[in-house]
Every structure is written in C-alpha cells, then in structure tokens.
Design a protein around this nucleic acid. Structure first.
Length: 802
RNA sequence: GCCCGGGUGGCGAAAUUGGUAGACGCAGGGGACUCAAAAUCCCCCGGAGCGAUCCGUGUCGGUUCGAGUCCGACCCCGGGCACCA
C-alpha cells in the first residue's frame, strides 16, 4: 500500500471529503479535522500531522530551505514566464466543479498571461539526467526512452543574423540542427513574445493586433503543434551571416519563446513546417540539398527534402557537394571565424517553472521589499506556513487577500514588505517524500545518514502517467541533494514498476458555455445492447440521460473514480486482492469491471473447504509425528511433476511481476489437489497433499495473506507463514522418462508422438515419420529437411517428389 | 502534430520471448443433487463442416521450415506533451 500524504498524488482526504458530500474546495478547519479522522479510520497508523504528510510545516520547511540553497547557487531564479490562465467564472461556483481547492475549471478558452515566475535549473543537469539513464537497469526501457526523448539532446549550430535597428547594430540569434541548409534560408521567424516582435509592433498596429491574438492561444505543446500555422511580416530585415543577403523577419504563432532562442531560421525547401508556411504566404523556396535520382518541386513536400543521410549541398557556393556532417563543420567554422556562431549542444528540456498561483501548496519563501527587492526569508524564520482557514471562492489565489499572510517586514531592512503569494508546484513535494520517510524524526536537517542508508528506493511503484514529469523531477531533486551533501546517491529509484492506468467510462452533461458536469459511474445506470455495447446512460437520481464520454484514466476532474471499498465490505480484502491481481498484469491498463469477483470468491472458498477436508488426515499425521514418506511411485510422479512445473512457472512470474498468472497457477494447484481423493488416502497421496498445500499457500500468501496465514497454522505447517521461506522447485520432480512431442509437416500440426526422454535424433525422426496421420501428409513426397526443437516439436519439411 | 505503449473468443486474459493459439477465470448452455431455490459438483463452450480438414491473434504486404511474437505501410484505442498532479 502506498504511503499517503497530502500530495504525493491526489489528496486522499480530499477524495474522502468529496465522497461524503463536503463541498469541494471549502478548506475550513472543520474539513481538515474531518480529513484527519478519515485517514485514521482508513487504518493508516500515521500521525500525519507530526510526521509524514508532505503539507506538514516541517516538510514545507525543507522544501523552502532547499529552494533558498538553490537560489544562492543560481539554480533557482526568477524570470518572466508565459502560462495558461483559466478565466474565472463565478457562475461555476454554483456547480461545484473544482480543481485544486482553488481554481475553478470553467471549460472556457484559456488565456496566456506573462507573469514573473521562479524557475529551477533542471537543464543544468540535462546531460547527467540523460547519461545516467544507462545505469537504470531496473527501469522499463520505454520509460527511459521517453525520458531521453524528453531531454532531447541535439547537436547543432547557434548563429546570428546581424541587423541595424534604431541606429544600433544588433544580432538575431537562432539555433538549428540543420546548418547544412543554411544557404537556403529565405526568412526568419520569431515568437510573438520575442523583443523584436514587440519592437516591430510599435509602429505597426496590424502586427500588434496579431501579436495580441497569439497571446490568446494555449501555451501547450500539443495545441501549438496542431493549430494552423500563422504568421505576419515585421518589416524588419536581417542580413544572412554568410551570404550577406537580406531576409525578412516574420512573427510566427508556432515559434516557442521558451525553447532555444525564441527565433528560428526558415529553410522552406528542407523543413516541412517552413515549406507549408512558405507555400501559404508565397515566400521563396530555395533548394540547397539534392539527392541523386530525386527531383525537387515546390509544388508538394516530399520526405527526401529533409534527408540528412543522402543529401548533398547544391546552390550553396563553396559548400556544394558536401554531405551533412562536412557541411555542418565547414559552415560552423565559417560562422565562428566571423564571430557569428558556433557549434552547440541543445536540449529540448526546459527549466522547471515552480510558481503556482494557488492556495494549496508550499509557500515560496520570498519577501518583496520596495527598497531591497526580492529578499529570501532567513533560515531561522522558516517555515513560511499557510493559513489553514482560507476559503477559496474561485476568484484567483485567496492568499493575495489574506493580509495576515501577506503583510510582513523586510528581513533585510525591517521596512513593511509583502510576502510572495505564489506557492510551489506540488511536484516539489513528491520529488523527495521517500527521502524524508527515512529520516522523518530529524528536526535539524533535511536528510541525514539514515536517509543515505535507505536510499535509493529498491522498488518504486507508480502509474505510467508519471513516466516523464514526476520521475524526472525526482531524479533532478536527488542530484541536487547529492550536490549539497545531503545524500550519497545519484539516483532515487533502483527498480521501477510502472502500473497501467485504471480507466473507466466518463459521464457528463453539458452545462452550456462549454462547461461540463461530470457524474460518477456509481450514480449512473448504463444500458447495453445484445453484444454488450453501451447504448446509453441515465442518471439514477432523475432518470434523465447523461452523455457517455470517452474511457479515461480515473481522476477527480472527470469524476470517474471507482471505490473498491464496497467490494471489500462484501467479499473481504483477500478476495478483492485476488480478483484485482488476477484481472490483468500490473503494467497493463485496465478498464474496471466487477465481473469476475465472484470467481475469486469461489476460488478462496474452495481452497478453504478443501484444506479442511484434508485437515484431519494431516493433523493426525502430525500428531503421531510420522515422517512423511518421500513422494514417489508411478501414481505420484506425474502429479508431483505437474506440481513442480506450476511452481516453477509461478516463481518465474513473481520475478517479473506478472501476478495474474501467479494467481492462475494457484488455481491450477487447487484443481490438482481437488482431484486427489482424501478419503482413506494412501501415504503417497497424503504426502503429496501435504507438499501441495505447503506450496500453494506460500505462493498465494502475498496476494491473500489473511486466509493463507490462517490455513498455514491450522494445517500445522508452523505459526507464521511469513517465516516459512519461498517454496523451492525440486529438479528431480521435473524429470520424466517420456516426452510428448508435436509433429508438424511443413509447419502444420499433424500429430503427436511419445518418445523416451533421451531419445536420439534418428529415433525421433523415425517415430515422427511412423505416426499414421503424419504419413497421410508425407506419402509420395520427398523429405527435404527435419527440424527438431528439443522437448517441443519435430517439423518435417517435404516437397512433391520430382 | 510529436514521443511511449496497446489491439488475441461474448468478457478479463495466457502463450516460459520465433515452435501445439485461447492456459486460468467470468458470462452462457446442458446435466447431477433438491419438493423447489440457493450453494456445490460434472460435462460443453472461437467460426465453418457429419467428418477428414479448413479458416482464425486490428488491416494489407514481407522474412522464415514455422509468425500473436520479427520487418514495412496503414487503421483504431490508451498514456504523456511541461499550470490536472
């Protein structure tokens, strides 16, 4: 069970409050008391207020302390940032659609806002974060691939286009990974937030309007990539650094200010996006790369236009004939000679903006003073704590209206000053909680020798949705703590299991104005057609229809979470655990359904009944202290072979976290034991049952601990199943003197043969050819080849006799 | 749009990583027990065919003695895309 705190993904207490009808987002002292009680009733032996909760003042203290250490080292800094801003809509208040106890999800289009923000310098660790992925052998490869792509190391050239503006010589810097195409530049494009765009807009109202329009879009990469590419010329011209030709600067809505220089060179002939942009606005497309045997046309884009491997420079003066690598070298050297550029390694990764305009988060420990500027809160005044009785009303960050929080004095000069009201991203909280668990009692330090002793975490389990952000932030935070001498490890998690999402249907009604109200699956009656397809859904409360939305991961905002508590109450925890583990392997996403829970209940019931059927015989055996005879003989051998084969498979599957087939193995063992007659059983059968139950109970104990512990002691194996040790495969039991092989003819199954275990190839071939059904397919053909897969099959390759 | 996964019976899935496709369950059908029902137990259960056999792992193509598994193209679904956390 995952330890629970206030963040580290989802506030359990908040969910509990919502489930109990407490209006979400009304964070009053009463609610907090209620939530504490909820946590206690859920059986968490955590005094969360004193110890573990990541919102606890003592945890905030170290968030803030480390933030200040980063600030001292320039690893945290303040700069202007562009964020998405949900417009506040008071009418939503009535609908109780809430996010984060602060902002209200309105469904209205977002605006971009430019505000001062604090950033953490994760990009300084980009190289190490990338390189250390190689050492993470216990991580799923796809997670490492995702992180590597996210960091996005690329080799390129940073160079400048000189220009003169307002009588001053200036440089427009750009970055490109395709310097070999630089002679094909026909224009440049800058982001709407670029200073050059602002300067040009000063005497160009049309451009100013366009820039204003760009500000209304989203800053999300997904949206930027899918919007229609739009642009407008600035009228400003810059000089090509190599050819000296003048090229025009455009403002493009697809250029990101936060990435690279906020400006790009455009080579329409060899970049697909530039190509379409140039086509749309009638800009020049100049071919400077050719591939032998292909012909270039400005009519339509072809993938080879961007081919780095086969391309050669043309129409590029002295670079003609060079391939990609040589051309980049030559061009970079020439740019360097003019002091207008150099080779540069670039990362896609951006610094981590941690400022949030929300109430519920760790306060950023800064005081704003008119005289001294932004002053860090001194260590001895940490932590800066949140007022607990704040009631968000949907009109922005409520901290801004709390004078008792905001009004303070400057730590430097003592004059009246204002506290920063932005709080930290809650990813900060989740970046090191596992470190704090190992040294939670230490009031004097963020981490100590205990933390270093326990770290790194041997086995971390989390949802695949955290593959990039949370897991990358945690790795970064660990490296920062190491560099500050707080930890002696460089990576937080040795082994990683990424669970698939539990997904469920979403149900909603449109509230008008793009707003939606989501209903929990428990409140909804779903109708199906004969094939089991969903045909519609109605709300139980009023019988009127609701819209069936897409199947998505369970979340608060979509209100599609399903609480297994009802099942636990009806069937017991062991049954629900067996059912859950049996449903699918943990890495796979799973659409939640109750069907099948009956099967799990039946299985445990059968196990219990069968164990007690054998109970008197096994007890009697124990009472007289007879040593069990070895399980041997012709009757026992095949059964014991099966027992150990299943055990081998189950142990293997535990090793790869495939718990569904472990449960399946336990069911097979039960079926095997159920086939043994316990009435007046001979010694070998008693011994086999004794061995069988001991294996089955130990395999199942991690999944159904209560029942297995009880049976373990009832059947007289010992007092604690936890101390029993893992069952071991007996290699002798697996040995068989006969094997059954499949016979194929030309790859198609035609028969089976039983042969002695040590049978040689010739005898095997003969046996296969002798099989009557096989002969039907080989008669009159000539045998070309015989393929033998030991222990599995013989494949006879035949052709028509010629 | 980009990155990462996935697609197998009516349903959840398995196939020890290129070697008998559908293990183990759920649902369904039939039977036993019962006055009856529940529970329990037994049998059947991908499609076509009396059968031999043929077809079948999202679609199309390829490699191979042999492909759910490998390669190429495409379709659909899920996760992430930096302020949901």
């Amino acid at each position: 069970m995952q330890p629970m705190g206030w963040d580290a993904f989802g506030l359990p207490a908040e969910n509990a409050a919502m489930a109990n009808g407490v209006p979400p987002g009304r964070w009053t002292r009463d609610n907090i008391a209620y939530m504490k009680a909820q946590l206690k009733s859920l059986g968490f032996a955590i005094d969360w207020e004193r110890e573990l909760a990541t919102c606890h003042p003592d945890y905030y203290r170290w968030n803030q302390w480390l933030f200040l250490r980063m600030l001292e080292r320039g690893l945290a800094y303040k700069k202007s940032g562009v964020v998405n801003w949900d417009p506040v809509d008071q009418t939503v208040l009535a609908n109780e659609q809430v996010i984060d106890g602060c902002g209200w999800r309105t469904g209205a289009p977002v605006e971009k806002r430019e505000i001062p923000m604090y950033y953490l310098g994760i990009t300084r660790y980009a190289e190490e974060l990338l390189a250390d992925l190689d050492g993470l052998g216990g991580w799923p490869p796809q997670v490492k691939t995702m992180q590597a792509n996210w960091i996005g190391k690329s080799y390129g050239v940073r160079f400048a286009f000189p220009y003169t503006l307002d009588g001053e010589a200036q440089l427009l810097w750009v970055f490109t990974t395709r310097a070999d195409t630089v002679m094909g530049v026909t224009f440049c494009a800058v982001a709407a937030e670029h200073p050059l765009a602002a300067r040009a807009a000063r005497d160009n109202p049309e451009l100013a309007a366009f820039i204003e329009e760009c500000k209304h879009g989203s800053v999300k990469e997904a949206d930027l990539e899918t919007i229609e590419k739009q642009g407008m010329p600035t009228g400003i011209r810059v000089r090509h650094p190599l050819s000296g030709e003048e090229v025009e600067v455009w403002v493009g809505n697809y250029v990101l200010m936060g990435y690279g220089e906020g400006a790009v060179m455009a080579v329409p002939a060899h970049d697909e996006r530039d190509f379409h942009f140039a086509q749309k606005y009638g800009l020049e497309i100049r071919q400077v790369i050719e591939v032998a045997g292909e012909s270039f046309s400005t009519d339509a884009w072809q993938p080879w236009y961007a081919d780095k491997e086969r391309g050669r420079c043309v129409n590029s003066g002295r670079y003609d004939g060079l391939g990609y690598a040589d051309a980049v070298d030559a061009i970079a050297a020439d740019l360097a000679a003019r002091e207008l550029g150099e080779k540069r390694v670039q990362y896609r990764l951006r610094d981590w903006g941690v400022s949030r305009q929300r109430y519920w988060g760790c306060p950023i420990p800064i005081v704003h003073c008119d005289a001294c500027g932004d002053v860090p809160v001194p260590d001895d005044q940490l932590p800066v704590v949140l007022p607990e009785d704040c009631v968000p009303d949907g009109s922005g960050n409520p901290l801004q209206r709390r004078d008792d929080f905001v009004d303070t004095s400057c730590p430097s000069c003592g004059a009246p000053a204002r506290r920063e009201t932005d709080t930290m991203d809650t990813f900060v909280d989740s970046s090191w909680y596992y470190v704090r668990y190992a040294c939670r009692d230490n009031r004097a330090a963020m981490a100590d020798a205990n933390a270093s002793y326990w770290m790194p975490v041997d086995q971390y389990v989390g949802g695949i949705e955290h593959a990039i952000l949370h897991l990358l932030y945690s790795r970064f935070w660990t490296k920062v703590m190491r560099d500050l001498g707080l930890l002696d490890c460089a990576e937080p998690f040795t082994n990683l299991l990424t669970q698939g999402m539990v997904v469920a249907e979403t149900f909603y009604r449109d509230q008008g104005g793009g707003k939606k109200r989501y209903y929990n699956p428990a409140e909804v009656e779903v109708s199906h057609d004969d094939k089991g397809k969903v045909t519609g859904a109605t709300l139980r409360a009023d019988g009127a229809p609701v819209v069936v939305g897409p199947i998505e991961k369970m979340s608060k905002s979509k209100n599609n979470g399903v609480d297994p508590q009802a099942l636990v109450e009806r069937y017991g925890a062991d049954t629900v655990r067996v059912f859950t583990m049996f449903a699918a392997p943990p890495e796979q996403s799973l659409e939640w359904s109750d069907s099948g829970v009956e099967g799990a209940a039946r299985f445990l019931k059968r196990l219990w009944t069968l164990a007690y059927a054998w109970h008197p015989a096994l007890q009697a055996l124990k009472a007289v202290g007879i040593a069990l005879p070895p399980v041997s003989g012709a009757d026992a051998a095949p059964l014991r072979r099966e027992l150990h084969a299943v055990l081998q498979q189950a142990s293997h599957d535990y090793g790869r976290y495939q718990f569904n087939t472990v449960v399946s193995a336990c069911m097979k063992l039960l079926n095997l034991l159920g086939g043994l007659d316990h009435e007046g059983a001979p010694a070998w059968r008693l011994a086999l049952a004794h061995e069988g139950f001991s294996v089955l109970l130990r395999l199942l104990a991690p999944v159904a601990p209560h029942l297995c512990q009880q049976l373990w002691s009832d059947l007289g194996y010992g007092s604690e199943i936890l101390d029993a040790g893992w069952p071991q495969v007996d290699p002798e039991a697996l040995v068989s003197d006969e094997v059954e092989l499949v016979v194929q003819v030309n790859g198609k199954l035609r028969g089976q043969v039983r042969v002695p275990a040590g049978c040689d190839r010739a005898a095997l071939e003969a046996a296969a050819l002798a099989e009557p059904n096989v002969q039907r397919f080989t008669a009159g053909k000539s045998l070309r080849k015989v393929i033998v897969v030991p222990g599995r099959l013989v494949n006879l390759v035949v052709t028509d006799a010629s």
